[in-house]
């Protein structure tokens, strides 16, 4: 299972990279969103999969799955939401100001 997930993570990372390398702002933001999915799965898998029960003491006697990656991911999910929001707004602000969402076209525009 772990190896399979790692391959999935690799594929997600490839797709994310390809999207980030495109010229369109929306694709780039989607790329970062996919990156966060990939990274969450990567971190979770590092702690080992299905090695124990839900990490809640009252639910079982253990062994529990590794709780630390879960805590890290929980933080990461919320942060990635905030950054995605910021990027989106940045994108649409750029689009409104410059009338373009193509990075190469934006390059040609004079600095303000």
């Amino acid at each position: 299972m772990e190896s399979l997930i790692m391959i999935l993570v690799g594929i997600l990372a490839s797709v994310g990279t390809y999207l980030i390398l495109s010229r369109n702002i929306i694709r780039v933001i989607l790329g970062t969103a996919i990156y966060s999915h990939a990274v969450h799965l990567l971190i979770l898998t590092m702690g080992g999969l299905k090695k124990g029960d839900v990490p809640i003491l009252s639910q079982s006697e253990g062994p529990f799955t590794d709780a630390l990656p879960q805590a890290l991911i929980l933080t990461a999910i919320v942060i990635s939401f905030a950054t995605t929001a910021l990027l989106l707004v940045l994108a649409y602000r750029t689009y409104k100001t410059n009338g373009s969402d193509d990075f190469h076209e934006l390059r040609e525009m004079p600095d303000e």
């Binding site: 839900v54 809640i56 003491l57 009252s58 929980l74 919320v78």
Partner: peptide, 8 residues
Amino acid sequence: HNAPGGGF
């Protein structure tokens, strides 16, 4: 604190 859930 004792079950799934929390601030986030």
